[in-house]
Simulated assay, not measured.
Amino acid sequence: MSIVDRVPVVLRSRRQQRLKHVIASEFLKARTLRSQWLLWSSAVAGGLVGTVAALLFARILTSLGEGIPAGEVDMLIVRAPISGAATVALFLGFAAIHLSANERSTGRERLTDLTVPATGKTFVARLTVTALGAATVSMITFVSACILVLVASELSGHSVEVGLLDQVLAVGATTLAMTLVAVFAAGIGLCVRHGVVAAGVFVSIMVVLPAILGTIGATSRNDLYAWVASQMPAGRVGAVLEATVAGDLLGTVSACCMLIVWATFSVVLAYWCWHAESGHQAQREPAAGDRK
């Protein structure tokens, strides 16, 4: 029997791969890509740089002494661990797009489809790896930021009493928000074939469009534009940060629920595009075989 005769047997055996095997394969791919590690590391570095900047600003205000409102320095120190959350969200979004759209933009997606013909498993695996990677990076970033703030406060002698439960809830809520943003970005990457275009769409939704709506709302004095901007992913991330600092549990849950809606919408749209493209390829392959 030649190697050509054995190919269908190999493909049939690979069709029996379980979801955990596909997830392990996607995780291995993400772990071995230097560019993926670069994006994740940039997210960590961006979060810590934001924390350091907040601590330096608090130090400057402390050195000024008189004329500083009471409690403003304390609030800066409390907010310091999450001061770089916006940068973390952007880099995690870029990492999610790179992980979800990289193969499609380079054409290596066909090799993955040959190895795992059940493309639905590949879809779920990429979302799973994206969510786990974003959650891990976020947790490392914000826990490290909390430790950095604690050490800096002890060295400067200006410590702020924050309950352990409040810190855990703040880190958990912020990590959840960052993970949902990454899933939202992964959905965009799975919808759009080219990674650069997907990144452009992500930046437009996260940064450009809210800025435009906010500017229109401020110039026209119409609160509707500002409200729409606040309900977009970037606005909801900001609401999560503000609510966690204020200890507003209801506000935190409300903002996270809206992020879940955005992430769900992105994933559903991505699955529809993914399924439609898979069906189109399945129809095109028999047609090509008939022409032969």
Rank of each mutant, 00 (worst) to 15 (best):
W37M: 10
R18A: 02
R18N: 07
K292Y: 14
L64E: 15
L64K: 11
L250I: 11
A85D: 14
W272L: 12
T87C: 01
I68P: 13
A185E: 06
A287E: 15
W262Q: 01
A182G: 07
T175E: 08
R15L: 07
L250E: 13
V44A: 09
W40Q: 15
A199R: 01
P69R: 08
A30F: 14
V208H: 04
F184Q: 06
G172E: 15
R12V: 07
H280K: 13
G133K: 06
W40M: 12
L209D: 02
S35K: 03
I68M: 10
A211R: 04
S230M: 04
T115H: 11
Q16H: 12
L132R: 07
L33H: 14
T87V: 15
A211Q: 06
V196N: 03
I23K: 05
I188F: 04
A211E: 05
E242Q: 10
V267M: 03
L241T: 06
A186T: 08
R12H: 10
V116A: 04
A239Q: 08
D113G: 00
Q231C: 05
M1C: 10
L155C: 03
T136N: 08
P81V: 10
A243D: 05
A118S: 12
F91N: 05
F94H: 04
Y271P: 06
S13C: 00
L28H: 10
Q36H: 11
G133Y: 07
A186K: 04
L33T: 13
R108H: 04
F202A: 00
V181N: 13
G195H: 06
Q231Y: 01
S100Y: 01
E161M: 06
W40R: 14
R110W: 01
S83G: 11
A152K: 03
G47W: 09
I60E: 15
C191Y: 02
L127M: 12
A198V: 02
L114S: 08
L39K: 07
F91E: 06
T62E: 14
G217F: 00
